[in-house]
């Protein structure tokens, strides 16, 4: 048994899960099970949202440690699902390491939706959430414009490697600006509904729920990290929208 290779394979799977937005306990449990399946009873795995620490003691008494940083995370439920399946299969069948490595690479290479579909997704969310929160049809159409613009800003700042804080601030300011401008020009009615609908794609509602679950599951460090993350995003959004709404108030005293 090549334990160096085993720990690499296990950490690859953990890395894949974590970078696709899986919960901490899923990452830790998966790696733990795989190591046990290959006969490494003595293993310690610790994960936080941007790092994995893993140490095993081989049956021969040698200790191997590995640290994996996770720099980019994006929710990808398709990958989480496949990686989870693969983990169960590895535990059951204990395939040769090459096979497992190949399957992990296969999952990492699975397609993601292209730019067009992502924009469509943004539009769907903002259009229907504007209607959902009580906007009229004109508002909903306006929020589509907002979300296309937001998507453009998000894309640009990914290319420029801007900080998330600035990205969120700019995107939400743009949405608020378009919404207030449209209402000012008489093209739409409720600027608040437009902004709420358009910003649903940015609001860290998911992160807030995940952080609560992490805390309850006992992953306190991970929970705090996610809490900080969601507070930062929320602050950025509030600042962006707030600035745009405040400036006209200061100038014209509306």
């Amino acid at each position: 048994m090549d334990y160096d290779r085993l720990i690499l394979m296990a950490s690859d799977l953990g890395h894949l899960l974590l970078s696709s937005g899986a919960e901490i306990y899923r990452v830790e449990e998966s790696m733990n099970r795989i190591l046990i399946a290959y006969g490494v009873e003595q293993n310690d795995v610790f994960a936080i949202p941007n790092c994995i620490f893993i140490t095993i003691t081989t049956p021969g008494g040698k200790t191997i440690t590995k640290i994996r940083r996770v720099h980019r995370r994006a929710n990808n439920l398709d990958r989480v699902d496949r990686a989870n399946d693969l983990c169960r299969r590895i535990c059951r069948e204990k395939p040769p390491l090459e096979t497992a490595e190949k399957e992990i690479r296969g999952i990492a290479a699975r397609p993601v939706y292209g730019l067009f579909m992502q924009t469509v997704a943004f539009c769907l969310v903002s259009f229907f959430f504007t209607l959902f929160w009580g906007g009229v049809l004109a508002d909903a159409v306006c929020s589509i414009v907002c979300s296309v613009c937001m998507k453009g800003i998000l894309l640009m700042s990914t290319r420029l490697r801007a900080y998330d804080f600035l990205t969120n601030l700019l995107a939400s300011a743009a949405a608020a600006f378009i919404a207030t401008a449209a209402v000012g020009l008489g093209l739409a009615v409720n600027y608040d509904k437009i902004i709420i609908g358009a910003l649903m794609t940015l609001v860290p509602g998911i992160t807030i729920t995940t952080f609560m679950r992490d805390i309850m599951a006992g992953d306190l460090v991970a929970g705090l990290q996610r809490l900080t993350e969601s507070l930062l995003v929320a602050t950025a959004i509030a600042l962006g929208v707030g600035l745009v709404l405040m400036v006209p108030r200061l100038i014209w005293g509306v």
Binding site: L77, I196, G205, I206, R249
Partner: peptide
Amino acid sequence: RKPATGYLLVALFPLVPGGGIYYTMEYCI
């Protein structure tokens, strides 16, 4: 036979108090 989290993440979308957060900010300003 899928992780439950996926269903939760998506389904919680409408219940997330997006409106509440927005109006809180607006009243603050």
